[in-house]
């Protein structure tokens, strides 16, 4: 299987504290992966590096079939080349309607001049309707995003990422603060999405990870501690010591 993203030998430190230490990580083009690890294991910093927010001190981040390095690209360029990121807290444009949120996210030319002259076509609006259907917000299209519930905002954000048509989706703790049924729905969205693209989910909640039913990578002190199925890693003594044993 060809690799979509290859992270190798990456290290980064803040004021002497090593947040990521010689981390290596690969993911294929249509794969669902969960990353777990205790607080401070470097999960969020890992996402920061892939999305270009943080520049590593050393190491390589290679992307796609053409094997381009992401390290020299800006956040916007990385996003345009197909990396979508969902933040821990739901971040949607609360002052705008659900429809506007999704329209902004649609995969269209991103330059300001093109955007200035852009007016949505019938297909675009149809695509937005389809996305709303997928994330279960069809009834809410004309509501302001700020008025949505916490779970609906999370879905809207995921919907915006899907509208972007990314090849890699990085999702940070999507289930935090959700009810059981909302979690079920979130799992469905993610599993469905992973059929056509790579999805990386950072999560604390073991039950949620179990339901995703995918390969798991355990991070600890900025590097990979174990990798494999959930049953495999939970049986690993190291993992039990640093994470599960607590």
């Amino acid at each position: 299987m060809s690799m979509l993203l290859e992270v190798s030998g990456v290290s980064v430190s803040f004021d002497g504290f090593k947040a990521i230490n010689n981390l290596s990580f690969n993911i294929g083009s249509a794969e669902l992966r969960a990353i777990i690890g205790p607080n401070g294991a470097g999960k969020t910093t890992f996402m920061d590096i892939v999305t270009g927010k943080t520049r590593p001190d050393e190491g390589r981040v290679i992307w796609g079939e053409k094997s381009v390095s992401l390290l020299k690209m800006s956040e916007a360029q990385i996003a345009q080349s197909g990396v979508g990121r969902k933040f821990q807290k739901p971040t949607v444009f609360e002052d705008q309607t659900v429809q506007e949120n999704l329209l902004v996210a649609l995969k269209k030319p991103r330059g300001w001049l093109a955007v200035l002259g852009y007016r949505p076509t019938v297909e675009d609006l149809g695509r937005v309707d389809a996305l709303a259907e997928e994330i279960g917000l069809t009834d809410q299209l004309s509501r302001l995003a700020g008025e949505l519930s916490h779970g609906q905002k999370q879905w809207l954000e995921i919907g915006m990422l899907l509208a972007q048509e990314p090849r890699l989706l990085l999702v940070d703790e999507p289930a935090a603060g959700m009810t059981v049924t909302e979690r079920q729905h979130t799992t469905d969205i993610l599993v469905e999405a992973a059929k056509t693209r790579a999805v990386v989910v950072v999560e604390h909640d073991m039950e949620f990870v179990r339901r995703l039913n995918c390969k798991v990578t355990v991070l600890h002190e900025g590097s990979v501690l174990a990798e494999g199925s959930l049953d495999h890693v939970t049986a690993n003594q190291d993992v039990i010591d640093v994470y599960l044993g607590r």
């Binding site: 803040f14 004021d15 969020t44």
Partner: peptide, 8 residues
């Protein structure tokens, strides 16, 4: 100040 402490 560097790193995540600096905020964004």
């Amino acid at each position: 100040l560097k790193g995540r402490a600096a905020g964004d």
